[in-house]
Design a protein around this nucleic acid. Structure first.
Lengths: 230, 230
DNA sequence: TCAATAGTGTCTCTAAGACACTATAAG
DNA sequence: CTTATAGTGTCTTAGAGACACTATTGA
């Protein structure tokens, strides 16, 4: 019996757009599909939720992320939900899109589901690829959300190791908005906000050593009183 | 055949939380359910989308709103999506929550679906009622979204008639955040932003006549450069 | 020494917040 | 006149943006 025989039900999936910085470039984790529909095309590593296990959608997204990356505590936020008769040839479908911020160094891609080719692909390239389902618009929506929140939150800290310098943090911001930020103003904004704690460690990189910070133990994300003006 | 026999499909609905100001109080439109489950309990006027008609979820929300209120161009924004095995006794369900801002004067409640009792209920009261499904948390989420965006956008203008005074606009803001705003600062914020156009009309209310404004023809919503600090 | 990057001090600017004051109506 | 509400002018403040300057390392 096909799904469309059910007047009230739809095919449902959860699609986490997983962002990370790879060599200073903002990337998303994509999987090459092995089965129809869209076999051999890149897609967001999402899919059906295990209805026996999930009590709500956040559960589903957390479990999905654990399956695909092994991570248990990443930053995770719902971005949007969309669907319709044309999203999946198998029938009327709905998908909830989440955005996750992770460190790719914490992930061993071999842990992922059997044999599927999983790869970090820059957002720029990803949006040029032919992607499965409505995944291109989902990645665009998640990227847009990330860029927007960048202007008034400290979200990119979730792409950093536990300790980091102001320079690397700034480069993370710049990798997302794709434009340079004023070095001193950026540092003042971060330090004045009181969200960073100086660990006392220094990072030596061929010139004056830079202080290494960790994020203060405050709720995520931190909201700055004013947005950056670009 | 029951829905749960379908391993991949879920029951899906769209639930628009419809806000309006009634006598200066922020209210939501609720419907008393006539059928099980949750018969005789108040609920958001949502439900299943017509899969034959909707090409995507926004379509579904627009159609739903048209059915229930007759309105075709209200402010409409997706708030969140949630679901699980316990949301609806009929099976694993997912619901997408939208927020709509309307003028209750533009709606004739008799237009609504046959015989169902439809009523404007203040947000405060609504959240105290026993509501169907997860509608209490959905209304809370939509209200939270509205309060948040109030601080840095001009969203409440969508609750106003086409022309309005600064005093009535300020009262709309105050009805949402439930605290007074500084009269002169509020006026300066609005006028400096250049989003209001003086129509030349005056509203006489027993003292000095107040100028009546309409919203400039700019994209909705307008984002103020800084948030209100409460 | 110099080059490179880190960090500090200070100025400007914008817009929010607060307050004093004037303006225009009804009674 | 008084009272009530509308509207204007000005000061303060916080924080972003920009720039000059000093500090600390390696080569």
């Amino acid at each position: 019996m096909r799904h469309k025989d059910h007047i009230d039900s739809v095919l449902f999936s959860v699609d986490p757009v997983i962002f990370s910085l790879v060599d200073g470039v903002l990337c998303v984790l994509l999987v090459k599909r092995t089965v129809e529909p869209y076999a051999n095309q890149w897609s967001i590593p999402g899919g059906r939720v295990d209805k026996a296990v999930c009590k709500n959608l956040l559960d589903g997204a957390i479990i999905k992320l654990k399956e695909k990356t092994g991570l248990t505590q990443p930053y995770l936020e719902q971005v949007c939900t969309d669907g319709g008769p044309d999203m999946d040839p198998r029938g009327w479908s709905v998908s909830s899109v989440y955005m996750a911020l992770v460190r790719h160094e914490d992930i061993v891609l071999e842990n992922t589901n059997a044999g599927a080719l999983t790869s970090w692909i820059s957002v720029r390239e990803a949006l040029d690829l032919p992607l499965a389902f409505w995944h291109a618009q989902f990645i665009e929506a998640a990227y847009q959300r990330l860029r927007d929140k960048l202007l008034y939150t400290d979200l990119p800290i979730d792409l950093m190791p536990t300790t980091f310098t102001l320079a690397t943090l700034r480069k993370a911001f710049e990798a997302i908005i794709l434009q340079p930020l004023h070095r001193q103003s950026f540092a003042k904004r971060m330090l004045d906000a009181g969200i960073l704690i100086d660990t006392g460690e220094k990072e030596i990189a061929g010139s004056r050593p830079a202080a290494k910070y960790r994020r203060a133990n405050i709720p995520k994300p931190y909201f700055f009183p004013r947005a950056l003006v670009l």
